[in-house]
Nucleic acid binder design. Structure first.
Lengths: 223, 223
DNA sequence: GAATTACGGTACTCTTCATTTCCGGAAATC
DNA sequence: GATTTCCGGAAATGAAGAGTACCGTAATTC
């Protein structure tokens, strides 16, 4: 996956299975510095305006060190996205109520993390139609983990009886990401506490917990 | 606004107030060809990958003809967006019910128009943070007109009594654009009839017409 | 018909930027 | 200590693309 292609793993016979390279070793810490720099620059400039010079400068590295590890800008970004998300994403806390869980989801630490994720997605959106692999990676590494956290919260609410059984949890768990994304990307309005409160209390909760499901209308069309 | 800077309007004295140019006249039809080509290429390639050569080729024009009319790529795009929207956007038909109006809104002609608009917005999103003027123009010319059509539909529903008074129509009218945009940009899933039906019947209508406004939750905390 | 301006094309200038190469020096292996 | 591979830095290569300059030709005005 990495660029470290543990090359010729079975040929020689010196130390058994070690890479047994001759010269100076790769600085593993530098890998992290470069990946973090890549995400920083991507969040700041967007994929199209992100330059490898900027990444190298931010990482205090030479461009040679980057291209010794990754074959191209696109691969570097893909790898950087994969790392930046696989680490964190703890289970959302169980506050005892759906409303409490939802607020905990947005009030907690992700303040800074999610803001960066939004900028990264913004920078990527334009490149996605042109790089399907990059698009798939972004969805898998950035979008899905966050959506699944929401889904967990809704599933707990179903278990508690706050949400009627049979409700479409997939639609519900897309609601918040979609509205936040739209507000940031298209409307360019701030994702502040007022907005999040309104989103949770006026949109998500009414839709999730409404007594009479969705049959004021769908009774006509069935489903 | 255009690039036609009806220059030196008061200097000479020949014919009174006409432009009285000497040579061959500008081909007004060419203006339209170029603007349409610009939107086509923008929808296909996105702002960053849209080239003036491609616009010229699509319009069957020379680049000179373009730069004689607009001073830069950004100005051309702004002007093209302004034109492409100011024309159409008729009042949405009144079918007698909110549900009918909403379906009429998405079933009608805009099929092709809205698909293109989505691609244009996708191509623009990445450029917006770097070109605030372009962003404002896109919001004003592309987003607002379509959102206001939705608002009109909701206002009629309030008048009919389908929507309880006091409902936040602004939030409601952002819902459909946001979810469509997110599905197209981030999820890259098709905006088909099934999706639109689900969106209208399971999300918009329940939220708009639910008997108990938004107090199933805020009743707990007060607000 | 002469002068002027637009047109489609093509070639050119200038930047930007991904990617490669090279340099002197530092760490690891032999 | 010789060799190898790494490092940061800086310069070189090459492609892409915005904007400009011309060329021969077509309209328009005088």
């Amino acid at each position: 996956m990495h660029a470290d292609d543990v090359a010729a793993a079975g040929a020689g016979g010196e130390r058994g299975c070690l890479p047994r390279k001759r010269g100076r070793k790769r600085d593993d810490a530098l890998d992290q510095q470069i990946l973090e720099a890549a995400v920083d620059v991507l969040a700041r400039d967007g994929y199209e305006h992100m330059t490898m010079d900027a990444v190298a400068a931010t990482a205090r590295a030479g461009k040679g060190a980057i291209y010794r590890r990754w074959p191209s800008k696109a691969q570097l970004v893909v790898d950087a996205l994969a790392r930046s998300s696989s680490t964190e994403m703890p289970e959302p806390p169980d506050t005892g109520s759906l409303r409490g869980d939802l607020h905990a989801l947005v009030d907690g630490r992700p303040k800074k993390d999610d803001a960066r994720m939004l900028r990264v997605m913004a920078g990527l959106v334009a490149a996605l139609p042109l790089h399907p692999d990059l698009a798939a990676m972004a969805r898998e590494q950035l979008v899905e983990p966050r959506r699944l956290r929401q889904r967990t919260v809704f599933e707990r609410a179903v278990a508690r009886g706050e949400i009627p059984a049979g409700r479409d949890l997939d639609s519900l768990s897309h609601l918040m990401p979609a509205l936040v994304f739209y507000r940031q990307m298209v409307l360019a309005e701030p994702i502040d506490q007022d907005f999040l409160n309104h989103l949770i209390d006026q949109i998500i909760l009414p839709l999730a917990t409404a007594a009479v499901p969705a049959d004021s209308s769908s009774a006509i069309s069935g489903r």
